[in-house]
Write a protein that binds this DNA or RNA. Structure first.
Lengths: 219, 219
DNA sequence: CCAAAAGTGTTGAAACTACACCCATGG
DNA sequence: CCATGGGTGTAGTTTCAACACTTTTGG
């Protein structure tokens, strides 16, 4: 009954740092691909669901939990791992900016820019490309960008997040009109202090489904 | 290294029969869920990729190959199979109408309407619902409907296919305008005979990517 | 000539893009 | 009072939905 196929989960952990879209990678300590970078991952335990396994991997790397995690794709080519047959269910996680600790750089884990990736182990480069495509796609249609921001944020911050992820610049007025019209965020009443004119702080609307399929948000 | 987790693939095999969207199901001969219906599936062999496994399952059930197959989602809840921990990578396949043989009803396999499903084993009802959602979604944005039709088809047939799958009726003129404008099909020059005025036969354009993301094709 | 199905255009409404200036606050 | 970032409106264009009649063939 056992199919001699190992099952792992790998997690693409996204965060916005310094106006850059970054992923958390670990440097491999052992062959194969020793010294190269890889997505955090691990075997699925018999007593945990796939999503639990992904959450565990995320928590082990970042001490973060209860963030947006979503299944990406399952990879199972025969020779993707030279040690044997491994099927990997990949997830992507969106870690809100304030929870991104500088991940005690002890255990060879580091944030790397999605736009300047190091050489990756296995087929992980391919998987990351796919994850970026999916993130961009979801951003355009479903308004999931909040998940990378603090609970309260300004529209300008939100726009920057979108621009960073999509790799294009957006028109301020059109962006605001559309994102508000989509009805997924609302004013908190609070405002920022500091430089320049104070900005309204917005938050994600709890009663809005995060997966609303809006008409394309951006050009 | 072996994780004590079994890996299977299950395939949602879609076809259009009698102006109805149907799936090929098999009746279970043994416990658990003996006598209930299930999606065709099987263990992934160590020497085949996931997609190969899905193609094999499809071929075993239908003697059809080289059709559109696409990964759907991976299910791995702990108790979805009472016999043990099973992770299932699900695929969906679109079988063009003329290849749908009446599947020698010998081995307890049968086509069932998606709109009137029997009681299903495991979590298969849920999976089928998900597959339908995905198929509809893809249809709206990516023009994959051809895969369920013969190589040459009339616009009316194509429209019927869309209507059957989406469960709504569409305006003839708007449908034609949009589907042609999307540029994924072209005239063959041939026409139908038979009842009424002959209709132009169209075919899928080989040089068009089937996955073109068009602006929403339908309302 | 009649039944059956194919084919075709227009109009009003809504959505989209592009674009430039004034506003509120802190120092 | 000035530097900094926040905030707002419109016009021209494109896209969209709704809708009914004429054409071609076979029997």
């Amino acid at each position: 009954m056992n199919s001699e196929v190992s099952v792992t989960v790998d997690v693409v952990i996204f965060a916005l740092r310094d106006d850059d879209l970054q992923v958390l990678l670990v440097r491999r300590q052992h062959p194969p691909f020793e010294g190269l970078w890889a997505m955090p991952g691990g075997y699925v335990k018999p007593q945990e669901s796939l999503e639990d396994a992904a959450a565990r991997v995320l928590y082990d790397e970042t001490s973060v939990r209860d963030v947006h995690i979503e299944q990406l794709y399952t990879f199972g080519e025969i020779n993707r791992d030279p040690r044997g047959r491994v099927v990997t269910i990949t997830y992507f996680a969106l870690v809100p900016a304030p929870l991104v600790l500088d991940t005690s750089e002890t255990r060879d884990a580091a944030w790397k820019s999605m736009y300047n990736l190091p050489t990756m182990a296995f087929d992980h480069h391919y998987i990351l490309d796919y994850a970026l495509k999916r993130l961009r796609y979801k951003l355009e249609y479903t308004a999931v960008g909040f998940q990378l921001l603090p609970p309260e944020f300004t529209l300008t911050k939100l726009q920057h997040a979108y621009e960073t992820i999509l790799g294009i610049s957006l028109d301020k007025r059109n962006f605001r009109r559309r994102i508000l019209q989509a009805g997924v965020i609302e004013e908190t009443g609070r405002r920022t202090g500091g430089e320049g004119r104070p900005a309204m702080l917005y938050c994600f609307r709890e009663d809005a489904v995060s997966e609303v399929k809006t008409r394309r948000l951006f050009p």
